[in-house]
Design a binder for these strands. Structure first.
Length: 843
RNA sequence: GCCGCUGUGGCGAAAUGGCAGACGCAACGGACUUAAAAUCCGUUGGGCUUAACGGCCCGUGCCGGUUCGAGUCCGGCCAGCGGUACCA
């Protein structure tokens, strides 16, 4: 293949402008109080989800969101905003550690190399980041503040009175650790015996380790937890006013999973025990014909009868041995064992059998349920399998089958609430339970506390020491707490973290040793958006003035994969810091947008396996960065999933070449010179109109992030001006400003070239104001309207824009085509939509 | 199962309830060229009809509804993609 002729000299233009932007610090945003800061301007903080710098480098998915935010950032700057548009690296993470385990190369080196490559790629695309604000989560100057924030969380609790985090000193009870927002608990974790390590949920696929495919079992271990559940209510409520996609809000709400219901106490026959269950349907209490405890419930051992004890023990053992895979697989088939004890239904006083079954989870509610088989699918399946009684207590509103009806209806067979509608029945029975001291109204959440420790090397060490089995914080002055040097980064195999190998480091004092766990990768990304406001600050995680000026994030763009966890965790930390008075804002991200993923040309997800991965640098080598950016935006709506197309890139590249030739032509010796068609001439009316339509469309579309249609409009502009014999330079110059956020290199170069021959007031396009459109110039004297008969277009006619309804109606009725179609029919009403159409109804 | 998103030409897609298919790709025809590439101009949803200009019908996953008028709103399905997994 011989070398393709470049459609325009992007290969010399683009590096030139990239260098120039760097040298002039053009995209550096000074902070309040710094030289060059203009307090008169409004601010705009536009943020990307910063990447994990993997060894593979950028793929075309990363720059999709980055291009969108870059367009917005450049646009807002042209509109006079102080724009904060930063980039950094979420650099702690498993791949670098695993590479270290294989090769012995320290993760820090791998990380540094990967960052350098990522940064080079991003610069080559021409993004206008303020690189003076670059941050890396693995940098001690950064993670000292991650550790500091952990200490804030560790040192506080959620006061239920105020629903706010407060210093732990304000807690008056005798066990502060029971309320601390960071605490240690014995919790089941994903233990992989083959790998000798604990895995995060995301690292477990179908009950097997993502790496190696080894079985993973649940095993209780002592872990650091963050009490995010204390914020469940606020995390739901304060989501409401944010400008986020409804789907994402819903996803978060469902993840938090609020359920309103009641706890009900059941006495156990012949025992001095009670079992408390949680139910969302207290109105079905009379229908509770049996009871189920989770196999792990501590009551089981005490309640099991001697003749059932063995069966119970066997079942418990079976369940414990089940891997996640088996549990998932067997989910459809219910299993369980009768424990030989009975409970008393507090409403009906019936004696009901107590079972254990693994469909009841120990971690949710009270770890016990009342079985109401008539009105719960799972209970019904269980009751049918084990032949337990089924008692209908809710009458469906229509003629539906009663057994298995889970909706709302009327209470039956329930003396205390007989005949009441479900909502009222719930109220009545809950009130009765409360009067009798047998229960209370309560709320449960699916959300669990956040398992915050990892048994890894490449993460932030906890600023915690242990002495006589008790944890305590190290002082802030000891931060950053840097991980010790190690030669061997492998897990120890016993479940003990690799940091245990650094024996000197572990020993804190004669009496105390360091915490060996490290924080999960989420930690660094929970607050990076704050650090961007003031990345150099050595005295505080973010300066107060800087935070007050820049926060909130006005626009946050990233992938849906972070729709739940990252965004939930970051909101949680933000709220703690807010409550403690360290921040002025309650929520971090005002407007959120998720870009859709880009598929390969074959319509499949890009992956090495299919060989359909596109490297941005390859595309840029052929078509240039501007074409790459514009194509990414022209493909379709930002939020939508869409396939890559190389011929599509070529089309956009042709558009940019047409822009180039609008201004430039080749002379005899093949050099590009300013086009002879350019002139300081008055535009035609039609040209003015199209320019102003373009200003309007591009402006509105950027605000709405509808970049594809903005580009389409610019294509219309270029097509119209290409055919003009005289090209009015003032209008073309304005067009370059519109194009600038999308194709910054090309537009800058052409703008500069124009300045060489035509008078130009400011030296650079970036000093231009964003143009305003004039509505008057968009108006037409005459427009075409459609004439319809019964909703079908029968003719189109030119009419004066100012034509009145009456004139339009008369015109339509007099039209021969319309008359043809209404002939012989009786005339109904005539709908007139000025500027659009007239619809004549005839039957 | 449940929840969410998406279904429009050969393809990516446009369209405040008001002329479906803007813009681009691909394809085809023409100009330029010794030729090709590049560039420029034009045609391009399907069917029927006309010598031609033109005209008619159908068409936004399927079925129904609201409306003078539905790709758009409402109800019920179907398919694809994504998330989630017994949360009482």
């Amino acid at each position: 293949m011989h070398e393709r002729r470049k459609p325009y000299p992007f290969d010399s233009i683009e590096p030139k402008w990239q260098t120039l932007w760097d040298e002039r610090r053009l995209f550096h945003a000074p902070n309040p109080g710094e030289p060059g800061f203009d307090p008169a301007q409004p601010k705009y903080y536009v943020l990307d989800m910063f990447p994990y710098p993997s060894g593979a480098g950028l793929h075309v998915g990363h720059p999709e969101g980055y291009t969108a935010t870059d367009i917005v950032a450049r646009y807002k700057r042209l509109r006079g905003f102080n724009v904060l548009h930063p980039m950094g690296w979420d650099a702690f993470g498993l791949p670098a550690e695993q590479y270290a385990i294989r090769t012995g190369q320290h993760p820090e080196i791998t990380t540094r190399q990967n960052i350098a490559r990522f940064k080079m790629q991003l610069k080559r695309i021409g993004f206008s980041y303020d690189w003076e604000r670059e941050i890396t989560t693995t940098d001690p100057d950064y993670f000292r503040w991650t550790q500091w924030i952990f200490l804030q969380i560790y040192g506080s609790w959620l006061n239920p009175e105020t629903q706010k985090a407060e210093p732990i000193a304000t807690y008056c009870g005798d066990d502060p650790d029971s309320v601390r927002l960071a605490y240690v608990a014995e919790v089941p974790v994903n233990w992989c015996p083959e790998l000798g390590t604990v895995l995060a949920n995301e690292e477990v696929i179908d009950g097997k380790s993502e790496v190696g495919g080894f079985p993973v079992v649940r095993r209780p271990m002592r872990q650091w937890m963050l009490r995010i559940t204390a914020f469940a209510e606020r995390l739901i409520d304060e989501l409401e006013p944010l400008a986020w996609p409804d789907g994402i809000k819903l996803l978060q709400r469902n993840w938090i999973g609020k359920s309103v219901g009641a706890e009900v106490q059941f006495a156990v026959a012949d025992h001095d025990e009670t079992i408390t269950v949680f139910t969302t349907r207290p109105d079905t209490l009379y229908g509770a014909t049996y009871m189920v405890l989770s196999p792990e419930n501590s009551l089981v051992a005490r309640l099991a009868s001697p003749d059932q004890a063995e069966a119970v023990a066997i079942y418990q053992k079976e369940v414990a041995a089940k891997s996640d895979l088996e549990r998932t697989d067997l989910a459809k088939d219910k299993s369980g064992v009768f424990i030989g004890a009975y409970a008393l239904n507090p409403a009906s006083e019936a004696r009901i059998p107590i079972w254990i079954a693994d469909y009841v989870l120990s971690g949710y509610g009270t770890g016990a349920i009342m079985g109401v088989p008539a009105h719960d699918e799972r209970d019904l399946e269980f009751a049918r399998k084990f032949d337990l009684p089924i008692l209908e207590v809710v009458q469906p509103p229509n003629d539906e089958v009663t057994v298995g009806f889970v909706g709302e209806g009327t209470a039956i067979n329930s003396p205390l609430i007989e005949g009441l509608a479900t909502t009222e029945a719930k109220q009545r029975i809950s009130a009765w339970l409360e009067e009798q001291g047998l229960g209370r109204r309560t709320i449960n959440y699916k959300l669990r506390d956040w398992l915050f420790s990892r048994q890894r090397y490449w993460g932030e060490p906890f600023p915690i020491v242990w002495s006589e089995g008790k944890h305590s914080a190290i002082s802030e002055s000891e931060l950053p707490l840097v991980p010790p040097p190690l030669d061997d980064f492998k897990p120890t195999g016993s479940g003990e973290p690799p940091l245990a190998r650094a024996t000197d480091w572990v020993r804190y004092s004669d009496a105390a040793t360091r915490e060996l766990n490290t924080m999960p990768q989420w930690a660094g990304s929970c607050w990076y958006y704050l650090r961007f406001c003031d990345p150099e600050n050595n005295g505080r995680f973010v300066g107060e003035d800087a935070e007050r000026y820049w926060m909130n994030v006005d626009l946050y763009v990233g992938g849906t994969e972070h729709a739940v966890l990252h965004l939930l965790y970051a909101r949680f930390w933000h709220k703690v810091l807010f409550d403690l008075g360290h921040l002025k804002t309650n929520e971090p991200f005002q407007r959120l947008v998720n870009q859709g993923i880009i598929l390969g040309e074959d319509g499949r997800k890009m992956s090495k396996r299919w060989g359909n991965v596109i490297d941005p640098l390859d595309v840029i080598a052929l078509y240039g960065a501007d074409a790459f950016r514009c194509y990414e935006m022209f493909m379709g709506p930002l939020e939508q999933m869409k396939p890559w197309s190389m011929t599509g890139v070529e089309g956009v590249s042709r558009f940019l070449a047409r822009v180039w030739r609008l201004f430039m032509e080749e002379n005899q010796s093949g050099e590009w010179i300013l086009s002879s068609s350019l002139a300081e001439a008055a535009p035609t009316k039609a040209q003015l109109k199209i320019l102003h339509a373009t200003i309007k469309k591009v402006t509105e579309d950027i605000e709405a992030l509808s970049f594809n249609t903005a580009i389409a409009q610019m294509m219309i502009f270029v097509n119209a001006f290409t055919t003009a014999e005289v090209r009015p330079v003032a209008e073309l110059r304005t067009f370059l400003v519109l194009l600038n956020p999308f194709a910054p290199h090309l537009s800058s170069e052409l703008y500069e070239s124009l300045g060489k021959r035509f008078s130009i007031t400011s030296p650079e396009i970036t000093d231009q104001p964003w143009p305003e459109y004039e509505e008057a110039l968009l108006a037409e004297d005459e427009i075409e309207i459609a004439l319809q008969v019964n909703g079908k277009v029968r003719d189109r006619v030119q009419v004066a824009t100012a034509a009145t309804r009456e004139e339009l109606e008369a015109l339509a009725l007099a039209n021969p085509r319309v008359q043809e179609f209404i002939a012989g029919k009786s005339l109904g009403k005539v709908v007139v939509i000025p500027g659009k159409l007239v619809n004549v109804v005839a039957t």
